[in-house]
């Protein structure tokens, strides 16, 4: 059974199930600014022709909240609530992501690292996954086991 992304072009799923996914970014060769997701034209200096780069697997929580409703209104994920954060990556981009963990696990300034969450299975039996972040240093959760 394969793992497929919820939408192509935003993150790379490693072949090794224990390895972390990587967010796909762009770096401007002219001014050095780094972006997520990928883009052709630099949003800072308007240089055309950025270079592909893979972003760090950990970052810092800039802000977070906890949603007291099931993700997708109960249809897809077996969770009663979930965290959402803006995470600053060392390269510069601020990424919005769901969080793995309970209501009281998070704080502004906390280090978090990326893994994958299984949202549902598609018609071919593939796991549809999205990236999420969890407190750094936590033992790796199995996909879908968080919250």
């Amino acid at each position: 059974m394969a793992r497929v992304p919820i939408e192509e072009g935003f993150f790379r799923i490693p072949d090794d199930p224990a390895a972390q996914p990587r967010l796909l970014g762009s770096r401007c060769p002219a001014c050095g600014e780094v972006f997520f997701p990928r883009r052709l034209v630099c949003a800072k200096c308007l240089h055309e022709g950025t270079e592909d780069t893979e972003l760090s697997t950990s970052g810092t929580i800039y802000t977070w909240t906890y949603c007291h409703v099931p993700m997708f209104g109960k249809k897809d994920a077996d969770v009663s609530g979930y965290g959402v954060a803006q995470i600053d990556l060392p390269e510069g981009p601020r990424v919005q992501s769901i969080l793995s963990g309970a209501r009281d696990d998070f704080a502004i300034g906390m280090q978090v690292e990326i893994d994958l969450e299984t949202l549902r299975h598609d018609a071919d039996g593939n796991e549809v996954v999205i990236y999420r972040f969890r407190p750094a240093g936590d033992a790796a959760h199995g996909a879908g086991a968080g919250s």
């Binding site: 919820i6 939408e7 935003f10 997701p37 800039y62 802000t63 977070w64 909240t65 949603c67 409703v69 993700m71 997708f72 209104g73 897809d76 994920a77 979930y82 959402v84 954060a85 803006q86 919005q96 769901i98 502004i108 949202l119 999205i130």
Partner: peptide
Amino acid sequence: RGAGRDQIDAPILPAAYFALWAQRRMH
């Protein structure tokens, strides 16, 4: 509702984006 369920930002509730702004201000 909102983003389609096959889009990267689909799992995030619209209210959450504004809540993120509120939480940062409280901080």
